[in-house]
């Protein structure tokens, strides 16, 4: 009686161990390749192998063209925070605290995270799909065949562009969200701009803006590195591009949220 159940149990355990082993192996492979990618980009920059024209073109595509959607998202986030805060505070907490609530939640959390999530969809998915299509249509091989390194020609300009653009986009998002939150507080609760500003300044630390931009910089590196890595690993034709892009979006979003959770214990103690 015991023998079959023992063997079933050992099969189950072996299956679990195999599964964990495979996952660990895959994670180690991804981590190693991501590290190599970052190192290759650094080497390309140091050796001045990255075209300035390509970087500027990418800044336009990933940065300038993202401004409208980033501002719309940030503006709405500012309005919603202001309105929901007003609803909760009425009659219990002085309304000037609203200035601090909106400013701090935007600068510390919503500005960088919402902008990052928007850019995962707008820029990260685009990079993975673009490079993935180039991989399956042999354009990456064609680059190698003409003596060009895809890391220098394709990866580095995209990574540098988002690394530079992201803090600027987050700074714009923060300013616009606070402005919209202030306008919303005035119209919905009659909170004057001066009072809002008083509240905002009361609990403001200059470190907060640095913290926000540090997050933006880290996210600005994370998104394109994962997107490029996943794009260059694509195989399996059009279906492969779709599958890889979906996985890339999932990895980027998850990584952003995990990094976001690590920031407070590391930098706000």
């Amino acid at each position: 009686m015991n023998q079959p159940s023992n063997s079933a149990l050992s099969r189950l355990l072996a299956g679990i161990v195999r599964g964990v082993g495979r996952r660990t192996d895959l994670i180690a492979e991804h981590a190693g390749q991501l590290g190599l990618l970052v190192w290759s980009v650094v080497v390309a920059i140091v050796r001045l192998r990255v075209s300035r024209r390509d970087v500027l073109r990418q800044i336009y595509v990933v940065g300038v063209q993202s401004i409208p959607i980033v501002l719309v998202t940030a503006g709405l986030a500012g309005i919603v925070t202001s309105q929901q805060g007003g609803y909760q505070f009425t009659g219990s907490i002085p309304l000037y605290v609203m200035g601090s609530v909106v400013t701090e939640s935007v600068v510390l959390e919503m500005g960088p995270v919402l902008t990052a999530i928007i850019l995962v969809g707008r820029v990260g998915a685009r990079i993975t799909a673009e490079l993935g299509t180039m991989k399956v249509s042999e354009q990456i091989d064609a680059l190698y065949s003409v003596g060009r390194d895809p890391i220098e020609v394709l990866a580095a300009p995209r990574i540098i562009a988002l690394f530079i653009s992201m803090p600027i986009l987050v700074a714009l998002a923060n300013l616009f969200a606070i402005l919209m939150g202030m306008v919303s507080a005035q119209y919905t609760m009659g909170l004057g701009m001066e009072t809002f500003r008083y509240g905002a300044q009361l609990f403001w630390h200059s470190w907060d803006m640095f913290y926000s931009l540090l997050k933006a910089t880290v996210f600005g590196l994370t998104i394109p590195v994962i997107a490029v890595h996943m794009g260059l690993r694509t195989g399996g034709g059009a279906a492969g591009v779709g599958k890889q892009t979906t996985q890339a979006v999932m990895f980027m979003t998850l990584t952003i949220l995990i990094l976001d959770a690590l920031f407070p214990p590391l930098f706000l103690q």
Partner: peptide
Amino acid sequence: RCKVGYVFQYAALFDSLTVLENIEMGIP
């Protein structure tokens, strides 16, 4: 790679570049 020219099965032209820019890429 400078000595070899490779003609791909489906041409593998770079989508985002013009014909001129594509051919320019073939010059070492």
